[in-house]
Design a protein around this nucleic acid. Structure first.
Lengths: 316, 316
DNA sequence: TTGCTTAGGACAGGTTCTGTCCTCAATCGA
DNA sequence: TCGATTGAGGACAGAACCTGTCCTAAGCAA
């Protein structure tokens, strides 16, 4: 029946006798198998008459997906970018799905995926959060899923590097960073680890019995460990352009509030002024900076460089 | 056996008697079923002895993937971003995979996916090519796969809008744009359509017999229809910073060639100067513009705006 | 060495599947 | 309207397969 399901997925439309020939069964048996698929919840439509046939429709449940090699690699690549945050709100699910796909990938597809990753630039080179290696994320996700203890090197905030042996519980995406909530075997206590500071994760092959978290869930645990550190710069700039035009460029990385027909207030919270400078440079509109002072300095410096570039030709 | 496969995919490790209990079969039958899966090409590893059990390994082929609802939505979202070009070289495969996943998605998951897409910003708001609606791409991909004729509205280069009835052949990704190669029924000839100019695509339910292209493949056909239009601006800028530092920011959208220890040549081909201006503004390094003249003007204009912003505080 | 797990053969009994034959019904084109 | 072509599905005989039971063998960790 997997063969039948596989055939139905590769092509939308199949005349019954063609399917039967492919599966080397009689027409009656083919109709019985179709009926069995339907009983299992798959939606197989049929058309009688001239040019009749069968087709698998989206039904009550997603059937097992039978993927070509290239498709599997594309799925893994897409999930990697989602796990990196390009699709807000799906990071954790993307990592789970990626772990599942990667765990089952034949080695030759795994190598193609890795080769692709190594020659793919990050879609957002000025990353808003630290870059997290998708391979590390995937390994951690697998360990969480399988209740398998792991070891890794960890660099904490005060730059000490330690070797850790932990029982991973859950991965949490919070504020553009990934955290691993795990039981630290050496410290005999729960810890929350920034994934961007994790390196050389290794599966140990040892399984453990999952422990109860001291908090209601992993997200709560991670938050409890926070001292609320506001982002470094709160940018406020008045831009003399319509809000919708500015929004188009800013995207989801800032808030744009109309203050007049052709003026708006742009607010951003950032750790680096690089991106607001880039943004303001590209807006073909006058603007006035309300805060912070550092942004004015950065703009002045950029203006000097851009101005000097304009002048350079004149001297030739 | 799908139940067994499903269980093996959800968790790495299963003792045999636990699996047997879950499936409500005897241990012997469980071992027979495992053997059948192995005969079908799945790699099921087993460990005897204390803490023994079964686990599904990546083997010679990717097994059918059994996905949770959230995982399917994450896969679709990731494929959408890949189809949009965030992962170079996989656009066509991503669209194919997306078409397959979407075709089989139960309506409730389809709605969740659409809802997510409508509230997701493009990962690159300053798109290098025209934005292509992933839903349109998916519809076109399905029609290509199923040899089903479609209709759509089309705005050609000279802004005429026409209604078309075509037999789609192939989607081609070329130079950051998507093209549909199809047989136009009304004009009785092959045509290549820019997907960003397609709207309201509709499946007709009518299948057709695939025709032979007049060229060797669809890519050749699309290229034959090109007048080679060079991109509008060829940017050449000398930057007084190390090449690797500049590369980090530029990513794959420009070429960076070292010309000295702490200087390099940046070359980009763009249709809009917006992005080079942004880039140069954010580089904390002096630079000299070799070409084009328009970039100097744009930098001077940006410098004026950024400079004015710096001056605004002084007046307060 | 012992206990715990998987591996797999032999067997009886029961269950399911298959192909054949057939009627019925829907669809499409002439 | 009619004929051809497709799917739907019942009845039947025969074959094939599956299951659980019982058992021995083997690998692994304590």
């Amino acid at each position: 029946m997997l063969s039948l399901l596989s055939l139905l997925q590769t092509h939308r439309y199949w005349p019954g006798d063609e399917l039967a020939a492919r599966l080397d069964v009689s027409g009656r048996t083919l109709r019985r198998d179709i009926e069995r698929l339907r009983d299992l919840g798959y939606s197989v439509d049929a058309t009688r008459g001239v040019a009749g046939g069968y087709q698998l429709r989206a039904g009550g449940q997603l059937p097992p997906l039978l993927l070509e090699d290239d498709e599997a690699v594309a799925i893994a690549a897409g999930l990697r970018t989602s796990a990196a945050g390009s699709v807000g709100g799906l990071e954790e699910t993307s990592v789970q799905a990626l772990a599942k796909v990667v765990a089952l990938m034949p080695p030759r597809l795994r190598r193609r995926m890795d080769a692709l990753a190594s020659q793919t630039d990050s879609p957002e080179p000025w990353s808003r959060g630290p870059t997290v290696d998708a391979a590390i994320l995937t390994t951690l996700a697998q360990a969480c899923r399988d209740d398998e203890s792991i070891t890794f090197d960890y660099v904490s905030r005060d730059a000490d590097s330690t070797h850790r042996r932990v029982e991973p519980h859950r991965l949490v995406s919070l504020g553009r960073r990934w955290y691993l909530v795990a039981w630290d075997r050496d410290r005999q206590d729960w810890r929350s680890f920034r994934v961007d500071r994790v390196s050389e994760p290794g599966l140990t092959g040892q399984r453990f019995r999952a422990r109860d978290l001291p908090t209601e869930d992993a997200l709560t645990f991670v938050r409890a460990g926070f001292r609320a550190i506001p982002q470094r710069y709160a940018v406020r700039v008045r831009v003399d352009a319509p809000a919708d035009r500015v929004s188009t460029t800013v995207g989801r990385w800032g808030d744009v509030t109309p203050v007049a027909d052709d003026a708006c207030l742009l607010e951003m919270k950032v750790d680096s002024l690089e991106w607001p400078v880039m943004l303001l440079a590209s807006l073909d509109a006058p603007f006035a900076i309300d805060a912070p002072d550092e942004l004015r300095s950065a703009c002045a410096a950029a203006a000097a460089r851009l101005g000097a570039a304009g002048a350079a030709r004149t001297l030739r």
